[in-house]
Every structure is written in C-alpha cells, then in structure tokens.
Design a protein around this nucleic acid. Structure first.
Lengths: 149, 149
DNA sequence: TCAAATGGTTTACATTGTGAACTAATAAAT
DNA sequence: ATTTATTAGTTCACAATGTAAACCATTTGA
C-alpha cells in the first residue's frame, strides 16, 4: 500500500504562526484602547515626525489604502496626527501624540515578551539562525513574486 | 542622540512570508479553476473518503465555519463530494472526485516547486533546522494562546 | 425518555487585501 | 507659461477570512 507523504506546506505554517504571535500580542495589550496597528505606531514614532504615509506603506510592506485605514484608526483614537508638509502640499507627515508616548513603552515591552515566549527553549544561536533563514526565504519569495512573468 | 533599536516583530514577518508563499503557489496554479483550498483538497485526498469536516477543521487548524465554506467551494467546483456517513447521520465523509484526481499531481508538484523557490540557497541542514525551530515557535505560541489566563 | 453533546449549517459582523476611480499638488515637457 | 504626467492621499467597492452566536438534526447517556 503506497502511502503518500504529506507535504506540509510551509506557507500555511508561517501564516498561522505569525497570526498566533499577533494574537498573543493583542492579549497582552488588551488594556489599551487600540487592538491593532501597534507596529505602525512604533514606526511613526521612529520617524520623528518626518514619516509620510507613502513611506509608512513601504516600511509596513502594504499598500496605501491600508495605510489610510491604519492612520485613520490611530488618529481617531488620538495617537497620531497628520501634519501637512510645508515642503510638499501632497504629503502628510505623521506625528505621535503625547497620549501615544505614554503607551509606546508598554507596546515595546509586550513585543519583547511575546518574542521571548516564541523563542522559549531556543538558544541565542538558534534564534539568530532562524531569523537569518527566515529573511532569506522571505527574499526568495518576494523576488519570485515580483518576477512573476 | 539616543537611537531606539527597531524591534522587527517576528509575527509580521512570518505572516507576510506565509502570504508570499501562498501567492506564488496561486500564480503557479492559475491554470486551474480554483484559486485556493489546495491543501484542503490534498488532505481530503489523504483521508481516502473517511475524513469528516470536523477532522478537516482540526487538520487545517481552523474552525468549522471556514471548513463549510471551503467544502462548499470545492464541491461547487466539482472536486469534492459530501457523503452522508452510514454510521453517524450527523457526519459527512468527504471524498475526492475524478476531476480532482486529475489536478492533484499538479498541485503537489507546484507546492514542491514553490517550496524549492523558498529554500533557494539553503542547505538541507538549514532547511530541516528551520522547520524544526519553526515548529517549536509555533508550539510555544499556541500553548501560550490557549493558556491565556 | 429526556437532556446534553456533537456535526454541520446559516447568519452576521469586522478585518484585510486588492483594484479602480478620484482630488489636489507637484514635476516635467513642450 | 501652459499643458501634461506623476505623485500622495482619499474614497468606493468587492472578495476572502476570522470569529461568534443561533440553529437543526442526530446521537449519546443519564
């Protein structure tokens, strides 16, 4: 009886694991009045008031429509402000509010915690090796997706 | 000038890479008249006509509502049939149609190809090491999610 | 025999990805 | 200088997906 070997598609595992990560992060941060776009907030903070939505889209590897939604969401909750650029009237520079400054340490901290949970039982070497390979796989796939001729 | 280190949240990378994988698979298989649920089809095939929707949900690590949608989709395209179990009238045993048998080799083949693309430049050892660590991380996170006290 | 549990379906809602059409502002071309 | 093309951002629309609740039919078990 020939038994077919089950090819576990790595795409599913990656997506599923990533979602688990974000879910756990969400649980840790459920004391906040936002329940997503944490990383966007961090990137805006790192932009020091000079980050445009276009650049944010690039850093988040997403499209501009999603960024509009994210910024609308964060701005609606009072964590981000759109400031019209004085240099280029089309651009908005994203800035963090004081309210956001208060919660950012907690967000960074929870991210570290969840990362620690994920890496539980792994050596430093394994962690860096894993990240390195993951980066290679990511590049391989995104290259293949763009060269989709 | 204190420069904050950017914590790349691994959850995002995992999700994004997983999505890239599935997108590429989709491109390879765009000659088919289905554009998702390939892995479900493989699992149903491996079930040899004995797989219920409940079990499929378990194997796909998803909920029963999603499985209803998946089976509706595959059945609507003529790849899967629901056969009422003679033993338990509540259950449906999922079976593959002849049409599905024709396309399964192509699906398995494309999965192998995309996996090869993803692993490009990595040694066998790196690949197995990666999968092993990914499994550990996945377990760590799902354990933490269930024990969400 | 009646209550509880199970497999599956349906409905509903929010999030997310994607594409197209659009406005306003800037850059480029003649 | 005036027209044309790009660019940044917004809006609309649609499909896929996750999640939760209510529901039916069947089976289990007290």
């Amino acid at each position: 009886m020939e038994e077919k070997q089950n090819i576990q598609p790595i795409g599913r595992i990656l997506s599923h694991t990533g979602r688990s990560f974000l879910q756990l992060l969400n649980e840790k941060l459920n004391y906040l009045d936002i329940e997503r776009s944490y990383y966007a907030l961090i990137l805006i903070d790192l932009g020091h008031g000079d980050l445009t939505q276009k650049e944010l889209a690039c850093q988040l590897e997403t499209d501009k429509v999603s960024v509009v939604r994210i910024v609308d969401y964060l701005a609606g909750k009072g964590y981000v402000k759109r400031v019209k650029s004085s240099v280029d009237g089309r651009k908005y520079c994203l800035t963090i509010t004081d309210k956001a400054k208060e919660i950012l340490p907690g967000i960074r901290n929870s991210m570290k915690e969840v990362t620690a949970v994920a890496y539980n039982g792994l050596t430093e070497l394994q962690q860096t090796e894993f990240l390195s390979i993951l980066g290679i796989i990511k590049d391989n796939l995104s290259k293949a997706n763009n060269t989709g001729s």
